[in-house]
Simulated assay, not measured.
Amino acid sequence: RERLARKERIMGFGHRVYMRRMDPRAALMKEVLREMAPGNPRAARYLEVAERGERVMREEKGLYPNLDYYAAPVLYALGVPVPLYTPIFLAARTAGLVAHVVEQHAHNRLFRPRVLYKGPRGLKA
């Protein structure tokens, strides 16, 4: 609540597609964390904290968590080192990013202007 009062952005919320309902992928990761909790004190603690944060953001901002909000505590509870989170999150998105590039080139249209492909040109899909 203090961070919200300072108008700071809270990471893990505000997916552009799932603004008014929970990202179904986040719901699945939340359930994984919930299933881990009984035998894993670390998972139980992070579930408690994450649910509290989710409740506050819904009440204060009307926002729901995105996938990464619950994926991070699951990885932490599994003992995955924090420096590996970004590569894991990127690896999970690679197929989608590549599909966007292929589709853009096939239609000679930029669908997502924030994505800038800087690799080699002329590759056949």
Rank of each mutant, 00 (worst) to 15 (best):
residue 49 V to N: 03
residue 118 K to T: 15
residue 59 E to M: 05
residue 56 V to C: 03
residue 122 G to N: 12
residue 9 R to N: 06
residue 10 I to P: 12
residue 32 V to P: 00
residue 15 H to W: 09
residue 10 I to H: 09
residue 122 G to Q: 07
residue 26 A to V: 04
residue 116 L to M: 08
residue 95 A to L: 14
residue 113 P to Y: 05
residue 71 A to E: 05
residue 2 E to G: 07
residue 22 M to W: 01
residue 85 Y to R: 03
residue 4 L to I: 15
residue 58 R to F: 08
residue 53 G to L: 10
residue 113 P to E: 14
residue 55 R to A: 14
residue 118 K to R: 15
residue 36 M to L: 15
residue 91 A to T: 14
residue 65 P to M: 10
residue 62 G to R: 06
residue 90 L to A: 15
residue 2 E to M: 09
residue 89 F to R: 06
residue 43 A to I: 02
residue 106 A to H: 05
residue 51 E to G: 06
residue 84 L to H: 12
residue 48 E to T: 11
residue 5 A to C: 01
residue 26 A to L: 06
residue 33 L to Q: 07
residue 23 D to N: 11
residue 111 F to A: 06
residue 125 A to N: 09
residue 118 K to G: 13
residue 100 H to W: 12
residue 6 R to L: 13
residue 40 N to V: 11
residue 102 V to Y: 10
residue 13 F to K: 06
residue 99 A to E: 06
residue 35 E to Q: 15
residue 15 H to R: 08
residue 64 Y to P: 02
residue 21 R to I: 03
residue 97 L to D: 09
residue 62 G to C: 01
residue 30 K to F: 07
residue 75 L to Q: 12
residue 53 G to R: 05
residue 22 M to E: 14
residue 45 R to Y: 04
residue 49 V to T: 09
residue 55 R to G: 05
residue 75 L to S: 04
residue 91 A to L: 14
residue 50 A to N: 09
residue 19 M to F: 05
residue 22 M to D: 03
residue 120 P to D: 15
residue 116 L to H: 13
residue 123 L to C: 01
residue 9 R to W: 02
residue 60 E to Y: 08
residue 67 L to F: 14
residue 56 V to S: 00
